[in-house]
Computed example of a mutant assay.
Amino acid sequence: MVLYSFLLLLGVSLAGGMESGIIGGKEAKRHSRPYMASIQTDKSHTCGGMLIREDYVLTAAHCLNNNVYSDQNLIEVVLGAHNINKMENNQQRIPVMKYIKHPKSERNNKKDYSFDIMLLKLKDKAKLNKFVNVMRLPKKIKKTRPNVKCSIAGWGSKSPKGVQASDVLQEVKLKLQENSKCKEMWQQYFNSETMICSVSDGKHAFCKGDSGSPLICNTIPQGIASYTFDGNCTNTKYPQVYVKISYFLPWIKKTIG
């Protein structure tokens, strides 16, 4: 089955593909998204994330592959950045003390992207200011509506092989897709209860390195970038998929206390 073969590749190259991380977007206004986090291993950007408390960052579970990043002391979060390849005065680089994947993100040694969500406990609290600030989560579980305009930002890769991250934060506007359309295309790999997806117009998309970044709709974070069609982020047939943040509110609140 063609779809199944593509899903097998997701674990290797999630959100992988085209010439830049954010497709069809533009450079974000400097520090207009003070909640954005660059998750780095050995000083290299791997995923996006969102500061939800002074000591916690929310991201995607697949961003931490235990087979590759077994030493969590190598994992750091960079806050307050615009250009992640410059030593900007407002940047805060904080080591990750503990990573907490959703308990259902892996079952029987297999990833379940229906629960592709993770919390990173920071070693030190972030110092909040105009460059670094927390993003408020949705207050309750709410059904998302199709065609709502949203946006996502990230430092995703600039090369087809995903070797180099974008220097500066990029952003793009996207529209939510009907869950029924997502389910129709992704079949059993899309869980309508825990996931949402965006319209695949072939021009606007997130790509490799943008996984874990928040999808913002009407100033509220609704999703976390999870996966897209492997090898072609702007594929017009398969919608891009996010885990639905509001569904995981009870788990998040219980975990961070």
Rank of each mutant, 00 (worst) to 15 (best):
M185P: 00
G209E: 08
P95Y: 02
F131R: 02
N129H: 03
E106H: 07
K175E: 11
V148P: 00
D124T: 14
V77M: 06
Q91E: 12
E184A: 10
G80Y: 02
Q187R: 15
P95I: 11
V172G: 04
P138M: 08
H102A: 10
H102Y: 01
S180H: 06
V134T: 15
V168P: 00
N89D: 09
F131Y: 14
I117H: 03
R136Q: 13
E178A: 15
F206W: 12
K139C: 00
N218G: 04
G223V: 13
V96M: 05
S166H: 04
I94V: 13
L176Y: 10
K86Q: 14
K125V: 05
P146E: 12
K123C: 01
S180A: 11
E171D: 02
F190A: 08
S192R: 11
K203E: 13
M195L: 07
S151E: 10
K110R: 14
K161V: 13
L128N: 02
I100G: 03
K203N: 08
K175T: 03
I152P: 03
N89M: 05
I100D: 03
V199I: 15
T144K: 01
H102N: 11
P95M: 04
N218L: 05
D167V: 12
N85R: 12
K161L: 15
I196F: 05
C207D: 11
D112E: 10
S200M: 05
K181H: 09
P138N: 09
N90A: 08
P160N: 12
P138G: 08
C182A: 09
N90S: 15
V163M: 12
I100F: 00
V172E: 00
Q187I: 12
G154F: 07
V132N: 01
Y113K: 06
S200E: 05
C182R: 09
Q91N: 02
P138Q: 05
A153T: 11
K86A: 13
N108C: 02
K123S: 10
R107W: 00
N129W: 02
E184Y: 11
A153H: 06
S192E: 14
K130T: 06
F131P: 02
L119V: 13
A165N: 11
H102M: 09
N129F: 00
S180K: 14
M118W: 01
K127D: 06
S114T: 13
L122T: 12
M185Q: 08
N179V: 08
I220C: 03
A153L: 05
N83V: 07
K183R: 12
S114A: 15
C197G: 08
K139T: 14
